[in-house]
């Protein structure tokens, strides 16, 4: 028991690692502030494409969505960060993470938004168009607000996934929370810094996970 506490919940080591972990946490927050809006924006584009009148565009979005939902995000990230330089395209870890997350998150958010848009009845479109609203105005003011509300639990739960996923940025040496914690671990030969990082993730995400369960159970009936 003592050795367990020493290895996993070592307060001295946590205190030493704290400044490093804190700066890592800040980078994680920064990263989330970049990739979540990016993903949501891309998802809207994808959803709009997937309900398009033009068959070619519909198929293209379908292929995009299926492809990027299939590729594990870590694979995508490594290909972009380590593979593209062979084609003469070099970028910072941050940039690589943003691109990978845009491709990955937009396809997941896109599927969610599409389901939401499809859940809004044809009558809503007709009523709005009959008052003279354009397609875009109808989409923006009448359909999307209802669509996002209908799929709110899915949007929130996918956002939790995106936040968790930012931890893979550590693999391309982006100095976010997990990277900082793992650095502290490798210096101290002690697992406590990563446990501390886990605690930070839990503090932020546990309430959201609870909320998602609530939302899902409420809408389920």
């Amino acid at each position: 028991m003592e050795i367990f506490l020493f290895q996993f919940l070592n307060l001295d080591i946590m205190r030493q690692a704290w400044p490093l972990i804190l700066s890592g946490a800040q980078m994680t927050v920064l990263l989330c502030l970049a990739v979540i809006p990016l993903g949501l924006f891309g998802g809207l584009l994808v959803a709009t494409g997937s309900i398009s009148q033009w068959r070619a565009l519909r198929w293209a979005t379908k292929a995009y969505v299926d492809f990027f939902r299939a590729v594990p995000p870590l694979v995508l990230l490594i290909v972009i960060y380590s593979g593209l330089p062979f084609a003469g395209i070099r970028m910072s870890p941050f940039m690589a993470v943003c691109i990978a997350f845009f491709l990955n998150a937009s396809s997941f958010y896109g599927e969610i938004f599409r389901a939401g848009v499809e859940s809004v009845g044809r009558g809503q479109w007709e009523a709005a168009r009959s008052t003279g609203l354009t397609w875009l105005q109808t989409y923006r003011f009448v359909v999307l607000p209802q669509a996002s509300r209908n799929v709110l639990p899915d949007l929130v739960s996918n956002t939790v996934e995106v936040i968790k996923l930012t931890s893979i940025a550590s693999v391309v040496s982006f100095t976010e929370l997990l990277y900082a914690a793992d650095m502290a671990r490798s210096v101290t030969y002690n697992t406590s810094p990563i446990v501390l990082a886990a605690v930070l993730y839990l503090i932020v995400l546990w309430p959201v996970v609870r909320l998602v369960s609530r939302l899902e159970h409420r809408l389920g009936h």
């Binding site: 367990f4 290895q7 996993f8 939790v160 931890s167 997990l178 671990r185 990563i194 886990a198 609870r210």
Partner: peptide, 23 residues
Amino acid sequence: VDIFRALPPLVVILIVYFGLPNL
């Protein structure tokens, strides 16, 4: 259930992978 839904899997993997040998 809540903990494993809230934690990034990579974090848990590192804790187990580097932590268990220390025990």
